[in-house]
Design a protein around this nucleic acid. Structure first.
Lengths: 168, 168
DNA sequence: ATATATTTTCAATATTTTTTGAAAATTCGA
DNA sequence: TCGAATTTTCAAAAAATATTGAAAATATAT
């Protein structure tokens, strides 16, 4: 397979992959393109390569920057802004985990805390099932939260090595 | 907070949560409703409770059954079908992990295998960056795949205990 | 076998999400 | 400070996704 075809397949399937994870297709595609680009790219490069509008490109780059996956690069003597993606995949994964934890897990935990002390008779089957469900989700969520915290701080090798030990 | 309000908040935020994970809102809401229902429910119960149409209810229940999160229950002497969700959250998580691994991770790994042997000169910076990116994603993916396999087979306590050991 | 209850399908519709592109704002060199 | 280059915004349009509801199919009791 030629590089050009491989590149297109990679970008396209990374985009499709993203949609299964609540990330929009274009954002994932821009990320994919930057991941495999040896040098930083301009908005125009990205627009041209992916065939998307300026506005779309701009908004999604900004979003990638918010996620901490892409950063602006200023090249001396150049007027345009350049963009580049973190290439270390382990760092990328950690960054995504960190953001999703903050954006999703933590608010969910807060809600569950409130829902757990619903009024009502615990002998009422409905109340009991509700509280039990909420509590068990909370318990697993707390565990996940702690685990992810440590993972975020870990080095890839340390993490993988330890997993290997357990999960043999 | 009263049970009714708590219930509504739980269902609604479970639905919103789902959309961040590529699951449609209604499917997640039906799942939430069944999770907190002590007894199995009929399609009509669900339609009425969530205020959605028969078709929508039916399609999403079927999808939940495909995911292995809900099952049909036949009550003796009853004409209608009843539905119930697995209440053990650890089992639910494992089931979701199992399905997503099959639906997303495995196809992605297959693609990466193909893309890794792209033609071209490894000294070409473009080729090198592409191959390096693909390889490192593949490496991490393989590790995740193995880890998830063991997790799927694990008991909650065993899993949690082991994590505690590492992540102290 | 028939009538009735129940489930399933799917074309049409509604809603949500994404994308566009042109105008406004900003940046920066001269 | 001015003017061109560049980036950002956002209302309108397009595309994608979800929902409805009625008709068709299926299941069940008698």
């Amino acid at each position: 397979m030629k590089l050009l075809e491989a590149k297109q397949q990679f970008i396209s399937s990374w985009g499709a992959f993203g949609t299964h994870w609540g990330i929009n297709r274009t954002m994932a595609q821009i990320h994919a393109l930057l991941l495999i680009s040896p040098d930083p790219l301009t908005q125009d490069d990205i627009m041209e390569d992916l065939n998307i509008s300026r506005g779309n490109t701009n908004m999604n780059i900004r979003e990638l920057i918010n996620w901490g996956l892409v950063e602006r690069v200023i090249l001396p003597g150049e007027r345009k802004e350049y963009f580049t993606a973190e290439k270390d995949i382990w760092k990328v994964v950690k960054q995504i985990v960190k953001e999703r934890k903050k954006r999703e897990l933590e608010p969910m935990m807060q809600l569950l805390d409130k829902l757990e002390d619903v009024e009502g008779d615990k002998k009422d089957k409905k109340v009991k099932t509700f509280v039990d469900t909420v509590s068990s989700i909370k318990r697993l969520g707390l565990q996940a939260d702690k685990t992810l915290d440590v993972m975020i701080k870990a080095e890839e090798n340390w993490f993988v090595n330890n997993l290997m030990k357990i999960f043999k």
